[in-house]
Design a protein around this nucleic acid. Structure first.
Lengths: 133, 133
DNA sequence: GCCATAACGTTGCATATGCAATGAATTTAC
DNA sequence: GTAAATTCATTGCATATGCAACGTTATGGC
């Protein structure tokens, strides 16, 4: 049964590796692309929120976001009410690159599930959604 | 559909994080436990083979194995025929700790799939096995 | 046999990672 | 209202990571 854990672990590491190779040319290696995608789709999260949503350590996420701010893909804005938090948004440069990131993610997904029928894909999605941690 | 990739990515990072926290007391943080488990179950792989089977970068795997040799969990043996390769085995110390690693993996797996019926678990396992990379 | 090609382990180097700790802002309890 | 506890962002530090490169050994083509 623990095959499930092992399988998804291996798949994840492999996808991560090829994604990083693919996106290094944009300066989006080391999982940086994950942040751009997520922030594009859900702008205005604060830093810790973003980290949690990606299941990534907050300090690692913090540094990754800072790098992305420096390289012009993301920007930070102070919150009006809560002085502790800083909200994250994509810049024009980030918006511009998003379609490429998304297309690659889609292509990865399609190859990954290429031996599944549409019905099986739907079932898999449903089953994964029921997993809990 | 790319939800599949995102889901398994998040799950993997989270499991990895808790596993590392759990096993750091044995000096088996940083995914080191993965190597011990794998080598225990399939002894005699050579270094690159082991890395590939875990979908981990070969140089990273090399260094992790070296650390585990230093800490006494694994040992290396030269191959009789092929002078290039070195095969990996668990030591007595590695064998001793394996049950704990395996038990934790099982517990993780059970919690993860706790909202699934037995039939659903079986289906999920089958579907994951059909994923391709 | 012999040369080109490939596979392996290994190292250097720049960078990422993550735990522990800090300080500031906010919320909770009383 | 205020003290304690919580939640942020941020930094320090030790360590892990992964690409590129190297030397050695094996393999394939001729």
């Amino acid at each position: 049964m623990f095959d499930i854990i092992r399988d998804i672990g291996g798949i994840t590491r492999r996808i991560q590796s090829t994604s990083n190779t693919e996106f290094r040319k944009f300066g989006l290696g080391n999982n940086a692309f994950l942040y751009v995608i997520r922030v594009y789709e859900r702008p205005g999260m604060f830093l810790g929120e973003l980290a949690d949503s990606l299941q990534i350590d907050r300090t690692t996420a913090f540094r990754s976001v800072r790098k992305l701010v420096d390289s012009g893909y993301l920007e930070l804005q102070d919150d009006a009410k809560d002085k502790r938090i800083r909200r994250v948004y994509v810049t024009a440069k980030g918006k511009e690159v998003y379609p490429k990131l998304h297309a690659f993610e889609t292509a990865c997904s399609e190859r990954l599930t290429s031996r599944l029928t549409e019905a099986e894909k739907a079932r898999l999605t449903k089953l994964l959604a029921k997993l809990v941690f």
